[in-house]
Nucleic acid binder design. Structure first.
Lengths: 223, 223
DNA sequence: AACTTTAAATTGGCTTGACCAAATGTCGCA
DNA sequence: TGCGACATTTGGTCAAGCCAATTTAAAGTT
């Protein structure tokens, strides 16, 4: 699969790799812009855009007239999980948290909330049929479940984790290629979750939610 | 004082102002790059650098061939909470989330991590014996467990929820009257959690964590 | 008239080339 | 040896142009 992300994002990742692999360690000076651009096969303006991204996330420091320096090489997580696996990390976090939340939600589920959830899935199906990305419906489904716990903190957490997925930052790591198929799968899984909630079966709901989010993460990483 | 920052930073701020002043509201489309650059009196490459900075911090979204769009003007960025949150809500959220997390943690528990946890409890006991508030040790205990999942997002969430409890805002709702007794109870509960982790018993650990946080919330409210 | 197809205009994506300004290195002179 | 002027290196910015994705408008079809 060809990388369709913007060039500056791809380039930023390549520079991150140079640093991660120890090619350039903390405090080291990278090659000059002109040279590095040629070395990476991109134009200087494009490299500059990448450097700005790296500067913002604290990977490098740019000193005018002097050079580009690698900043804190402090690496996160000591287990070999390694580079740029933020998407899987995100979806794992969602799976853990939302699975726990839905157990609470199942207990407090009202007929009214169930009706709202059904309406959401209908709208989602409609979006898919019209080749629109049902991101808002997807978001609503998860938020409504969180809201049914009556705990605003839990809602905020679910909200933030969801939005994290579609943030430009995360989109930069891997472009989303949500296809009609993948959305259809997601819809099916949502229906399974809803069925468990209708049956007031907390454990089944928990299992369905966990399954949905892990599958969703897998789809995200595979395309 | 003349602004000596790089041009892209100054430009990014000017665009942020255009958005903040309502010139361009959420969802609105900014002028085309060429036009906006001229309007701001900078070159297109410089404007582009500014736009990348704005894209990264989630202020705008750039759609190829379409335009530049203003995203959510709401800026949560960390601590957008504060309203309608009760201590009980906070502790309920912690109970739900940390109980789920410890199930993952129990599976990944290493002897090394267990040793660190034991050391934390010893330091906590020492603090209590010397009439010091073992807040840092308490914090460390919960964070170490979260960290053992290897998921930085989960760690962040646990961290934020913990710190929320001791924030000025929350402290204002109810001054903490953590007594020696209440800290001793907490320590005992921590030991119970540790015992379950040493036994590699996820369910027991889950129960112990849930029990600890609900009890902790009760103590908080009662004094 | 309504819908579909096609072409033109718009808009972001990227490159080449150049010049300026800050920082650094070099060399000659005291 | 020490210090100051000059040349080099390096980032900062601009200008103009072409390509590709998207949108809009026009033309064609039913």
């Amino acid at each position: 699969m060809t990388d369709t992300r913007r060039l500056y994002q791809q380039t930023a990742d390549r520079v991150r790799q140079l640093i991660a692999t120890g090619e350039y360690q903390s405090g080291a000076r990278l090659p000059a812009e002109r040279e590095l651009a040629q070395q990476l096969g991109v134009s200087r303006p494009s490299l500059r855009e990448a450097l700005i991204a790296l500067e913002i996330d604290g990977t490098i420091e740019i000193r005018m007239g002097s050079g580009i320096y690698v900043l804190n090489t402090s690496k996160p997580s000591g287990n070999g999980r390694s580079l740029g696996e933020s998407p899987s990390e995100l979806m794992q976090a969602r799976a853990v948290i939302e699975s726990a939340i839905i157990v609470q939600a199942a207990a407090a589920m009202t007929e009214e909330t169930l009706a709202t959830l059904r309406a959401t899935l209908e709208a989602m199906a409609d979006d898919i049929a019209n080749a629109r990305k049902p991101i808002e419906q997807d978001r609503a489904f998860h938020l409504i479940i969180a809201e049914s716990t009556g705990n605003t903190l839990l809602v905020e957490i679910v909200e933030n984790l969801f939005d994290e997925r579609h943030s430009p930052m995360t989109a930069g790591i891997r472009g989303h290629f949500e296809t009609t198929e993948s959305w259809t799968s997601a819809l099916t899984e949502h229906h399974a979750i809803l069925a468990a909630l209708e049956a007031r079966d907390p454990l089944a709901a928990q299992a369905a939610m966990h399954s949905h989010l892990t599958a969703s993460g897998r789809r995200w990483l595979e395309n």
